[in-house]
């Protein structure tokens, strides 16, 4: 039966690729590595690992990128080694492949790198550990929230957030007051898994943050956990300088069904930014209280179609729940 030349070969000729990997020309070796990675064959893994020792940095980078499809201890060990490559591009490729690891068995080599002297290595090791969700990472990640480098602290927050372990809560609450705004923002978002009162406490702090994106994250957290304790600080956030924060605070108050917020939310319905009017109208519907009806009816013909649609919908929800 015909078929020769019509189909891509089902299995790459690894022996032939091996020959080209021995070429004196680094470009030829590089092309061979690209084909090797594309073959998606299990046998390509050790060959790619060997190529991490190639004298040519481009070959090593290609090999590090191709290893993103493999998992497990051997891959992790090899990539952890490549993370220390003198060539920055090779190290970057290794870092991004490490982030693809999924099996808990890949953790040991990463756990040795979290104390490496270079911050970018520590950060990449934590980033790789995040998806593995292994218990041995817990205590060191808590410790790493005190790292001198904000990139490391940010990745450590990610590891703890994925682990969702209550033992990390005090440290995450502490991280919500980190000096770096990215770390604070991540820590506040991470606390969505915390018991309501704990998260509400963190949200309260976050709503007073100097950085608007942290305040926005804190408002969003309050909406996610729906804890009544959060209401007073959210009410204050309805006056935030950033409409983005006000919008998230409004939505959160809607989730909390905060009847006290109705007048303040009603006032937002005349704000010039239509996105904010939209959020306020959504919140008023979520609260499901007839006191909101005069506010909503007043914007049933708002100039912005999204605002009036939601105002009408919210009024409909309130009337049908009362009826």
């Amino acid at each position: 039966m015909a078929g020769q030349g019509i189909f891509e070969t089902l299995s790459a000729d690894l022996a032939e690729i091996e020959t080209r990997l021995a070429s004196a020309d680094p470009a030829e070796r590089r092309v061979a590595i690209i084909e090797l990675a594309e073959s998606a064959e299990a046998a390509a893994q050790p060959m790619l690992i060997r190529a991490l020792a190639d004298p040519d940095a481009d070959v090593r980078r290609e090999a590090a990128s191709g290893l993103d499809q493999f998992d497990g201890l051997e891959t992790a060990t090899a990539l952890a080694g490549a993370l220390l490559d003198p060539d920055a591009d090779v190290a970057a490729a290794a870092a991004s492949s490490l982030a693809e690891l999924k099996s808990p068995g890949a953790a040991p080599p990463l756990l040795t790198l979290i104390v490496h002297e270079r911050a970018e290595v520590r950060a990449a090791a934590w980033r790789g550990l995040r998806g593995l969700k292994v218990k041995p990472a817990l205590a060191p990640a808590i410790e790493a929230l005190k790292d001198v480098d904000p990139r490391v602290r940010r990745e450590a927050v990610g590891v703890l957030a994925y682990l969702k372990n209550e033992a990390a809560l005090p440290a995450l609450i502490e991280a919500a007051r980190d000096q770096d705004s990215d770390v604070r923002r991540a820590a506040i978002s991470a606390l969505a898994f915390a018991p309501g009162a704990v998260a509400a406490e963190a949200a309260r702090g976050g709503l007073a943050d100097e950085h608007w994106q942290v305040r926005e994250a804190a408002a969003a957290l309050s909406g996610k956990i729906s804890i009544a304790d959060a209401a007073p600080s959210l009410m204050l956030a309805l006056d935030d300088a950033f409409w983005q924060v006000r919008g998230k605070a409004a939505l959160a108050l809607g989730k909390l069904a905060s009847v006290e917020a109705i007048p303040a939310l009603g006032a937002l319905l005349s704000h010039s930014v239509s996105n904010l009017r939209k959020d306020a109208a959504t919140a008023l519907g979520d609260i499901r209280h007839p006191d909101a009806l005069p506010f909503l009816d007043a914007v049933a013909d708002d100039a912005d179609p999204d605002v009036r649609k939601i105002a009408r919908w919210s009024a409909h929800l309130i009337r049908s729940s009362a009826g």
Partner: peptide, 9 residues
């Protein structure tokens, strides 16, 4: 370009 080295990407 390294097409002369076998690259066809």
């Amino acid at each position: 370009c390294i097409a002369d080295k076998g690259c066809t990407v």
